[in-house]
Amino acid sequence: MTLLIDILSWVCILGGVFFTVVGGIGLLRFPDFWSRLHAVSVSDSAGMLLFIFGMCLQAGFTLVTVKLILIGFFMFITGPTATHAIANAALVTGLRPPVADDLKEDDAA
């Protein structure tokens, strides 16, 4: 049983590491601001959830798990709100997203 939990949390932590590093790489590799928003949301959602879940499995049924679930819940709510606020502020100040070449005609913005 302990072995099973250990294996599961290894998988979760390794997955979390993978997704956060991928988010960082995407933040560096993507060419413009609007695509970087999506790279951040990878490490915000998948990386964060996997890390929290892996730590929960290691903590067991204790007060620590309650705190971890609280952290995960808050970040689950505030993460997309902050991303939306940044995107909306950029749009309001006149930063327009580039539209792919084959989609130009049906762009009404």
């Binding site: 250990d6 956060t20 590093v21 960082g24 892996g54």
Partner: peptide, 16 residues
């Protein structure tokens, strides 16, 4: 496993 996690997060923080 937490050492691996800490190192991975550190790499991600440097990239950011």
């Amino acid at each position: 496993m937490f050492l691996v996690g800490a190192i991975g997060l550190f790499v991600s923080m440097v990239l950011v």
